[in-house]
Amino acid sequence: MPIKPEISWNDFEKLDIRSGTIVSVSDFPQARNPSYKLEIDFGELGIRNTSAQITDLYQKEELMGKQILAVVNFPKKQIANFFSECLVLGIYGENKEVTLLTTSLPVKNGLQVG
């Protein structure tokens, strides 16, 4: 995969990437691709909903309580009958499976990446 165009520091600063903990996971059969609906606790920002195409590598039970990183300042996006309020970050594998980006140690929910 080729490298994307260079961005400025100001472009990077526009992203608001925060730590959060998954507090609820459910199936999302209405999604085009296999996905879960997630509720994520971002501390002072509250709980936000999102959907994630992470069913290849993760079972619902193992996602509960997992601390993840997500972009929290994208506009809401409607997916089927559901509104996604953040974008969980992950790495695409060779077969398009997604490995979630997580913290190496527990941190407070809502802390910013910078």
Score class of each variant (00 low, 15 high):
M1I: 12
M1V: 13
M1A: 15
M1Y: 10
K4R: 15
P5R: 12
N10K: 15
N10C: 04
N10G: 11
D11E: 14
F12L: 14
F12T: 02
E13L: 11
K14D: 09
K14N: 08
K14E: 15
I17T: 10
S19M: 05
T21R: 13
T21Q: 07
I22M: 07
S24E: 10
S26Y: 00
S26W: 01
S26G: 08
D27L: 06
F28H: 00
P34Q: 08
Y36A: 00
Y36M: 00
K37Y: 01
K37D: 01
L38P: 03
E39M: 13
E39S: 15
I40Y: 01
I40A: 01
D41F: 05
D41I: 04
D41V: 06
F42E: 05
G43D: 03
L45H: 14
L45I: 08
R48M: 15
T50N: 04
S51T: 11
S51I: 04
A52S: 14
A52Y: 03
Q53D: 06
I54N: 04
D56G: 03
D56F: 01
Y58G: 04
Q59A: 09
Q59L: 10
Q59K: 14
E62H: 05
L63T: 02
L63Y: 03
L63C: 03
M64C: 03
G65T: 08
G65Q: 11
K66Q: 13
Q67D: 02
Q67I: 10
I68M: 03
I68L: 04
V71M: 13
V71W: 01
N73Y: 10
K76P: 10
K77G: 09
Q78S: 11
Q78R: 14
Q78Y: 00
Q78D: 02
I79L: 13
A80D: 09
F83H: 13
S84R: 02
S84D: 05
S84T: 10
C86L: 12
C86A: 14
L87T: 09
L87K: 11
V88D: 01
L89E: 12
I91Y: 07
I91P: 04
N95W: 00
K96R: 13
E97K: 02
E97P: 07
E97Q: 13
T99K: 12
L101N: 05
T103Q: 02
T103Y: 01
S104E: 07
S104K: 07
S104Q: 05
P106W: 01
P106Y: 02
P106C: 05
P106S: 10
K108S: 11
G110P: 05
L111Y: 05
V113W: 14
G114D: 09
G114Y: 10
